[in-house]
């Protein structure tokens, strides 16, 4: 029987690798009886989804631009590389 510490560790591991069938069974059973770990598991999924959405919204936000000082710095660096 897993306790909540062990369950939370396995849930985190499940984001990184495929669990063994035994581990999956243990987790499924634990989540069936423990609403707190079930919440925990959903929260980790929410965090992952949110982090991905954030990346996408940064990537598509036309208001975010390369600062003009940096643009000038890069332009100068290009010049001096060519010379």
């Amino acid at each position: 029987m897993l306790d909540c510490r062990q369950a939370s560790q396995l849930i985190s591991k499940s984001l990184d690798r495929r669990l063994s069938w035994r581990e999956r069974l243990e987790i499924r059973f634990h989540l069936f009886i423990c609403k707190y770990c079930k919440r925990f598991s959903q929260q980790l999924t929410t965090m992952c989804t949110a982090i991905n959405r954030m990346s996408q919204s940064i990537e598509h936000n036309q208001d975010i631009q390369l600062p003009s000082e940096t643009k000038n710095r890069i332009a100068n660096a290009i010049e001096s590389t060519v010379d």
């Binding site: 954030m54 990537e59 975010i64 631009q65 390369l66």
Partner: peptide
């Protein structure tokens, strides 16, 4: 492409 590349990098 500077702005596009910057956003791509910043997102990551």
């Amino acid at each position: 492409h500077g702005d596009f590349l910057y956003r791509f990098a910043l997102a990551r």
